[in-house]
Design a binder for these strands. Structure first.
Lengths: 215, 215
DNA sequence: TAGATTGTTAATCGATTAACAATC
DNA sequence: TAGATTGTTAATCGATTAACAATC
């Protein structure tokens, strides 16, 4: 089966859109409606569904409840996924209470930091000493972690976590992590993201011709 | 000319790698070295260069200093790019002091929030009242903004900023923003990012066969 | 039934990789 | 010179879009 990152991301978007439509009172949708809601073509929607054997009714569209269930069987039903955060600096701290995770059924259950002044057992989500991370991962059977440490610490933290059982990592440290093939690493590099954006803003202005002094 | 987001991102990566190699004392590199450093093929490196007319010496590789300069003429030289942040909640606050931006020559010059308790003129980067945003953008000729507001506020904030002169937006609110074609919007959706990651971890385990109860 | 929409196959588009002539 | 690497063209790969037969 073709597994394609973008396709999975779209599937998650479709589901979010379907929840929204459902809450608005809709019961059925056509591929066209979904396409409009997330900004793709209806061909793309039907193609994505077809890859995973998600079906509707010919000429009758899709029952929203059915569709959500079918997407759920691909993406994981409405189960809560637990994740931990390593590094409670600015980014780590923001992620701990990031509302966008709840929307996707992701719950940050604990955070870890080497700095005692950042540690706390009392808060809603405990911030534990870094040297407890391995035992925590094992005991709680955590599979997903977010790295928000300084660059230099990232590789070491990753190695420890992987040997403790982590299998998926979202990495905010702007370095290339080496991990063996049993771990899935997804990188978020906001600096590169912005730099790329700046490029397109620049060439866009040049093409349009309304050049402005960009101080 | 083919403008391709991934290609620009790679160019930025090449440059970062080159800075690193340069600081290690290297003077020349081959496409192979760059490829290794960022994890692509050497064909890809040479192809990317060729798109922008970036050249080296046949059989002699590339002079690092030259290469950095040539990439700079595509990506924007070492000028500092100024950006603002809107919404100083957890994410916004993290972005204000995000070290990864400096690395890419991006400077957050001000932030804005509607909540007076978050406002402050004294800190290194001032947090100003939201109703000052339009005049600030105009006076300082800011072109780049980061949206880190709650979802409901995002569209309205975008509209105000665009009419004040913003031309590029990095959006953290997990909604689809409508913007006219003179603005480049790049979306960061950490929830979807994690959800996609979780999917790949899951199917990976299923393929490998060492299924574990994922509580 | 006639009309509309799905599900899937074929066509297109675009990006990556391979290959190799040019050349230092 | 012989060997190695660039720069570019051609081949491949993969993803999106279009088209349309099936069918409700």
């Amino acid at each position: 089966m073709k597994v394609n990152k973008q396709c999975i991301t779209r599937l998650a978007r479709y589901r979010n859109a379907l929840y929204r439509l459902k809450s608005l009172g809709f019961v059925r949708v056509f591929s066209d409606n979904i396409a409009d809601a997330v900004g793709v073509t209806s061909s793309q929607v039907r193609k994505d569904f077809s890859i995973f054997g998600i079906t509707g009714q010919k000429r009758g569209g899709y029952k929203i409840a059915d569709l959500i269930a079918q997407i759920g069987s691909v993406l994981g039903r409405d189960q809560m996924h637990r994740a931990i955060v390593v590094g409670v600096g600015n980014i780590g701290n923001a992620l701990i209470s990031y509302p966008g995770f709840l929307k996707e059924n992701i719950k940050i259950v604990a955070a870890f930091d080497i700095d005692p002044s950042r540690q706390s057992q009392k808060s809603d989500i405990p911030v534990l000493p870094l040297d407890k991370i391995s035992s925590y991962i094992k005991e709680e059977k955590i599979k997903i972690a977010i790295i928000a440490t300084p660059d230099i610490a990232a590789q070491q933290v990753l190695d420890i976590m992987v040997s403790a059982g982590i299998r998926g990592v979202l990495n905010f440290a702007p370095i290339r992590l080496k991990a063996d093939s049993k771990v899935v690493v997804s990188n978020v590099n906001l600096g590169l993201e912005l730099e790329t954006l700046i490029y397109f803003v620049k060439i866009f202005k040049e093409e349009e011709g309304y050049e402005e002094d960009n101080a």
